[in-house]
Deep mutational scan, measured.
Amino acid sequence: TFELKGKVGKVVKIAEDHYLVEVEGDKWIAYSDEKLSLGDRVMVVDVDGLKLKAKRIP
């Protein structure tokens, strides 16, 4: 999973306390310091076990 750092994905679902992000065809649980919206493009900035930390990108 460490190779996911720096990869770009898309928010495909918003849950109460996390997001579901699709990166290279796989879906991952993600969290972010900022509020994300459905369809936002994100970059993986860190990997915490099986969770990704994501940041919105333009």
Rank of each mutant, 00 (worst) to 15 (best):
G9C: 08
K10G: 09
D33I: 08
L50I: 09
W28C: 02
S32G: 05
K7N: 04
K27S: 10
K55F: 02
L52K: 01
M43W: 02
E24W: 03
I57R: 03
E16V: 11
E3L: 03
E24Q: 05
K55Q: 13
I29Q: 13
K27L: 10
D17E: 11
I57A: 09
V44N: 00
D17W: 09
L52F: 02
K55R: 06
A54P: 02
I14L: 12
K53I: 03
L36Q: 01
L20W: 13
V11L: 05
I29F: 14
W28V: 02
G6H: 02
L4F: 03
G6K: 00
K7L: 06
G6N: 04
V44C: 03
K35Y: 11
K10C: 14
V23K: 01
E3C: 08
G49C: 06
G6A: 02
Y31E: 12
R41D: 14
D26K: 10
V47T: 07
V11I: 05
D46P: 02
D48A: 04
D17A: 11
L38A: 08
D48E: 12
D48Q: 09
V11Y: 00
D17S: 12
H18D: 12
Y19K: 01
V42C: 07
E22C: 11
G25A: 06
G6R: 00
H18F: 11
E16Q: 10
A15Y: 12
E34L: 04
K10Q: 11
E22Y: 11
S32E: 01
R56V: 08
K13G: 08
Y31K: 12
S32W: 02
E16P: 10
R41W: 12
Y19F: 07
P58R: 05
I14F: 09
D17R: 10
K27Y: 08
T1E: 15
L20C: 08
Y31W: 14
Y19A: 10
D48V: 14
G49M: 07
A54T: 15
A54K: 01
R41V: 10
V42R: 00
Y19E: 01
K53M: 04
A15F: 13
E16G: 13
Y19T: 06
V44T: 02
D26L: 14
W28Y: 14
V21E: 00
E34S: 06
P58F: 07
G25V: 05
A15L: 12
R41L: 13
V47P: 02
K13Q: 11
D26E: 09
D26I: 13
K55Y: 02
A30S: 13
G39M: 10
S37H: 12
H18N: 09
V8K: 08
D46M: 03
A54F: 10
V12T: 10
K10R: 10
S32V: 14
E24T: 04
P58Q: 08
K55V: 08
K55H: 03
L52M: 03
I57H: 10
F2Y: 05
D48L: 08
V21Q: 00
D33W: 07
K51W: 06
D48F: 08
H18E: 14
K27A: 09
L50V: 08
K51F: 07
K35I: 12
S32M: 07
D26H: 13
L4D: 15
S32L: 04
I57F: 07
K55D: 09
I57M: 09
G25P: 03
V12P: 00
G25L: 05
L20R: 06
Y31P: 01
K5P: 15
K10H: 09
G39N: 12
W28S: 01
E24D: 07
F2W: 04
V21K: 00
P58S: 09
V8A: 06
A30P: 00
L52P: 01
A54D: 01
L52Q: 01
K35A: 09
G9D: 00
V23H: 02
F2V: 15
G9S: 02
D33K: 07
I29E: 13
L38G: 05
K13A: 10
P58G: 09
V45M: 06
E22G: 03
G39P: 01
G49V: 07
V11T: 08
K13F: 11
D40L: 04
D33S: 07
A54E: 01
Y19G: 01
K55I: 05
V44A: 03
D33N: 07
L4E: 15
I29H: 14
V45W: 02
K35G: 08
L36S: 01
A54S: 05
K7S: 07
V23L: 13
V21C: 05
V8N: 07
K53Q: 04
G6T: 01
K27R: 12
K27V: 10
V47S: 07
A15W: 13
V21T: 03
M43T: 08
H18L: 14
G39A: 11
G49T: 05
K10V: 11
V12K: 07
W28T: 01
H18Q: 12
Y31R: 08
A15H: 12
K10S: 12
V44Q: 00
E24G: 05
I29K: 07
K5R: 04
L36R: 00
L50M: 12
